[in-house]
Amino acid sequence: MEESARRVGHYKWIEMRLFEVLGGWVATVPELDVKLRLGTHCYHHAWHSELWHKRLPELREMNPERLTAPPNDELVAFVDAMTEPEGPDLTIEKLVGAYRVLIPAKIAAYTYHRNNTSTITDAPTIRSLDFALADEFNDWRDGEMMLQSLIQSEAELDRAIAHQAALQKLMLAAGGIAGPGTIGDSYEPTQEAYA
């Protein structure tokens, strides 16, 4: 239960950072279709943060703020870098950060959690993960379509790739949105291996 609560606290923290920056970016992007999608997705992630906020007391954390925290400084550095682009000519960078790096990382983390927690005792968390994942997949698809419509030249493609690589390195250092072990460790010897 403690592990689930710890992860849920990290989820709330990253969902807050994401909905805040999507909201902040709305005024900075000139492309009308992107502006409207960011506004819509802002609410999705705010709602996820509310789901996790409400789940924390059910996981025996009566002060949700205590666990609303990043897993490590590396994820803070990632968020700082992801939220840095502001100029009207940086829509590609903004979308790459949210839709090619963070949201795929969230999908991985939520999916791992969903597949590895108890379907009976932790069913409420699974239900929230399913709701969140449905949004994440839809938003990822929207974001990828917006990016593909914006990337029209090799220079723009290079920009997208370079920014993604820089952010991906920061996410790698963080170990995922819940820190090292976000999606487990495939190479960790299992108990059966020693049996």
């Binding site: 805040e20 506004g39 802002c42 609410y43 992630h45």
Partner: peptide, 13 residues
């Protein structure tokens, strides 16, 4: 903030 995010969605619609 949650209310403002909800408003973002409404205004986008």
């Amino acid at each position: 903030k949650l209310d403002m995010a909800r408003q973002c969605w409404d205004e986008a619609r």
